[in-house]
């Protein structure tokens, strides 16, 4: 103990002073909430009446809660559409933008525009685009002789519709990340492959795709986190419906905590979802390291 004290004394005093803001922030807004969250998951509490110890009953309830299981299923549906769509669209436009063309900056800025605009704006706008009778998308479909699609009005279409909207909002960021990755591929690789007679699709699958592996993992990780954080889109657009088909993980936590006042149970779900996210990230990391 004394030894540590000596070390602290001999260290740079200003260093401690300047680190103080973070140490205080960490203690109050990270360490305490983390510890308290671990405490909460064993309790039943609505903030007003005294806490009640319930042991592992919150977890027991979790695995028998149909709505909770549904929210996981919905999140998986979201990710199953969002991730492949996001990667293919972003990669397509990144490859176009990587060619020697004019107006590159203009297109880059245009694709990026939805990224900086608030999700609330995007959601209010897309609710109108998706509207069954009067929405822009169905107007265009009927103009070309197709049937209307019940975008956010049917349980089958609602979550895919939100996934398409989320892709439209975020893809600009991933176009930029893929573009950075593409610019890191040395041109001689393509020249050598061309001399060896490799066809364009072979060059794509044997040079471009492997070189972008890390970027793809990043897209998967960020999208997974995004999927489990999905909140404002269903909150504003569908309220979780129809028939709970867009009830996202975060929306369910929000409802449990701030609508029903089930703090302990909501904390348990938060804990569980955080755990899932960490596991997904760890698996991704392992996959990347193995390559």
């Amino acid at each position: 103990m004394n030894k540590i004290f000596d070390k602290i004394k001999s260290g740079n005093k200003t260093g401690y002073l300047m680190s103080m803001p973070y140490v205080v922030y960490f203690s109050v807004f990270v360490a305490f909430p983390l510890a308290f969250s671990f405490f909460l998951i064993f309790h039943k509490w609505n903030i007003i009446t005294p806490m009640e110890w319930v042991g592992l009953r919150n977890f027991d309830r979790l695995f028998h809660d149909m709505q909770f299981l549904k929210s996981i299923r919905n999140t998986l549906v979201f990710l199953a559409i969002h991730i492949p769509l996001q990667i293919s669209v972003a990669l397509f436009f990144a490859i176009q933008l990587n060619k020697k063309i004019k107006f590159r900056g203009f297109f880059r800025a245009l694709f990026f525009l939805p990224v900086i605009v608030s999700g609330v704006v995007i959601t209010i706008l897309w609710e109108q685009l998706y509207s069954y009778e009067t929405g822009l998308l169905n107007l265009i479909l009927t103009r070309f002789g197709f049937a209307r699609i019940p975008w956010i009005n049917s349980p089958e279409w609602a979550m895919p519709s939100i996934a398409i909207m989320a892709t439209w909002k975020n893809v600009g960021l991933y176009i930029i990340l893929f573009l950075v990755g593409l610019q890191g591929i040395p041109g001689y690789l393509y020249e050598a492959a061309e001399i060896d007679g490799a066809k364009p699709y072979q060059r794509f699958f044997h040079i471009t795709v492997p070189a972008l592996n890390n970027t793809m993992m990043l897209v998967v990780i960020l999208s997974t986190i995004g999927g489990f954080s999905l909140f404002i889109e269903p909150f504003v657009m569908t309220g979780g419906g129809p028939m709970s088909s867009t009830l996202s993980a975060m929306l369910y936590i929000y409802n449990q905590a701030f609508y029903f006042g089930h703090m302990g149970y909501a904390a348990t779900m938060g804990f569980f979802f955080a755990f899932i996210i960490l596991i997904v990230i760890l698996i991704q990391k392992k996959v990347v390291e193995r390559d």
Binding site: V28, L34, I47, S229, A274, I277, L278
Partner: peptide, 18 residues
């Protein structure tokens, strides 16, 4: 702390604010 998802601290943070 950068890898801690916010889902885990959201509820305790609200209680802290209360």
């Amino acid at each position: 702390t950068m890898v801690i998802p916010f889902q885990i601290t959201l509820i305790p943070m609200y209680i802290l604010m209360v």
